[in-house]
Design a protein around this nucleic acid. Structure first.
Lengths: 331, 331
DNA sequence: CTGAAAGCGCTAACAT
DNA sequence: ATGTTAGCGCTTTCAG
């Protein structure tokens, strides 16, 4: 491997000069600069990022830590982060916490050990609560998808309560009354959407039936099982809302298993406008989140914070869109 | 930040001893070992991975470089890689090449600059061809999804030709004769599946109609556009096969746009058993790849190679499964 | 069994 | 404008 010393010798200058040229620092004679660059190219020299990192405490790696790598929401976000990071000369490290605080902590610590430049994080409930106690949190960080109320940190998210309220109200206004809710368990997102759901019911003078409200881990199988329970009740719901697309698949599978028609026998609505939601017959009414924009904005916020750690914190709230389709036609 | 020197001083030993203890090296008195460990814990010391990397040339980061981060196939693979890596104490860096050789090269170079421990790569055609000339390829590498014939490298993939042959034959045996093919353009995978498709036709004495064979970039919109062309022909196909799930969505959208029934008006089959393929009515006949296993195996192969760079290369070929569903019922 | 000291490849004072 | 040199935090000979 060719190192800076080799370049310096070949060019007949000191390593300091080579370093200056490569960093585009001033105080280098243009002719020398040119010559060094030529030698760099000839020798095919590439600076060792590890050494640069150790010496100057800078890194070109940012990390994206998500709670569920298989959720289409995060997949779309990570595409956006990857695009934006690449444009800005960074590469991204993707980590998955499975909504598991221990895994999250170990992951964050590892990232700090690696001295990454910053982190985009969808935190667990626990991380939000213990934020200040987590040593890893001295890294530049931006939080996505969730947020702590008064945390001194950049965050970007949607108004989950409002979005859930909107889509639930839509169901109610189309005549549905016994609405079942299947929410992601032990995630902030899930509980906020649950809150919006309950509020919408109350705002329409419907008493939330606790037996119609379920929490499940955000996986297809759990969505399926939970829904089967719901559908096997003596007085089954006339509509179901889920808080994410993984659960949605499970719900749909269960509805089919019970040979129920949508929306004739039961209406359905969900979060996240996936291809599947569009392709399904009837197409699914959903809350569409600006996923790509969330990822891009998060990356840009993070890079800005890396460049200026003292800048004031921002909380960006992005608008969602209710996309009305056939899956909850009038009752 | 507490460093090894702090630990050494607090424990009344040298940094060398602390290092030995932490690396579980022999020749340390048990009592000293115990004491050092205690101090490490008290001080909450964590070794700086960057310094370790620089000094000893070892890293705990492996990279996963995929051609399309939005393809469910790679998403499932990356979940598997992430799981396996985590278990083995590594973290993974995810990069996306968009099937773009320039982006791929720049990404690989960056990874080498960062001195990552190894790479799992779904290479572009060009990378396979120019393999030996790519400086980045001195990293431990395992290739997934694609493979070069006589490359001295670990690889893991399925038999694309055989799989495409099988699913095409299935269509033919169900009476379809004018079968359209929509394949991923400029990817090895796409062309191999195309090859299997053509072979199956020939083996059944059907002359491949060039106007029924299309290549598209693996995105929903391109699948849609391409299929619209196919469906607007005077003598449209009676069945369509696509080589990946992103294209499949586009095809399905186009078929709906033309108000055609599956399989009544037109049959459909594809690669990759996604949730969507199961949920769609009628459910889609697909070739199911062992995606999770591909990711796990790749990770395990990579770590083994990292630990022993001299070990002989392996080419692992995994079996696929034809899952027959309603989308190509008898004509 | 343990410590002193040399460097991994680079950057940034500090000299000149 | 350029070179000299001292580390960044760690591991690893080499002595003892």
């Amino acid at each position: 491997m060719v190192k800076i010393k080799d370049v310096a010798e070949a060019a007949g200058v000191s390593t300091a000069t080579v370093s200056r040229v490569l960093a585009n620092k001033p105080h280098v004679r243009p002719e020398i600069q040119k010559h060094v660059l030529k030698v760099v190219k000839e020798l095919n020299y590439r600076p060792n990022r590890v050494a640069q990192n150790l010496r100057s405490n800078t890194s070109k790696i940012i990390a994206l830590v998500v709670s569920d790598i298989e959720n289409p929401f995060f997949q779309r976000v990570s595409r956006a982060v990857d695009d934006a990071a690449y444009e800005l000369g960074y590469i991204v490290m993707l980590c998955n916490t499975d909504e598991n605080p221990a895994k999250e902590e170990s992951c964050l610590n590892l990232l700090r050990d690696e001295n990454v430049a910053g982190v985009i994080l969808s935190p667990t409930q626990r991380a939000i609560e213990k934020f200040s106690e987590m040593p890893a949190m001295d890294m530049p960080t931006v939080i996505i998808d969730r947020h702590g109320k008064n945390l001194a940190i950049d965050s970007i998210h949607i108004d989950n309560v409002q979005a859930a309220h909107a889509i639930t109200s839509h169901l109610i206004e189309h005549g549905y009354r016994r609405i079942g809710g299947v929410f992601g368990g032990n995630s902030i997102t899930g509980s906020q959407r649950h809150e919006g759901f309950v509020r919408a019911l109350k705002d329409h003078n419907i008493k939330p039936a606790t037996d119609l409200i379920k929490f499940a881990s955000p996986r297809e199988e759990d969505g399926f099982d939970t829904t089967m329970n719901l559908l096997n009740m003596q007085d089954r719901p006339d509509a179901i809302l889920t808080s994410n697309s993984l659960l949605a698949s499970g719900v749909l599978l269960a509805i089919r298993e019970c040979k129920l028609q949508i929306p004739g026998d039961i209406a359905f609505a969900s979060f996240d406008d996936t291809t599947c939601a569009q392709l399904f017959e009837p197409a699914i009414t959903v809350i569409d989140q600006p996923t790509y924009e969330i990822g891009r904005t998060a990356t840009e916020l993070l890079i800005k914070r890396i460049q200026d750690p003292t800048r004031s914190n921002r909380e960006v709230v992005l608008k969602t869109k209710l996309i009305v389709r056939k899956s909850c036609g009038c009752k």
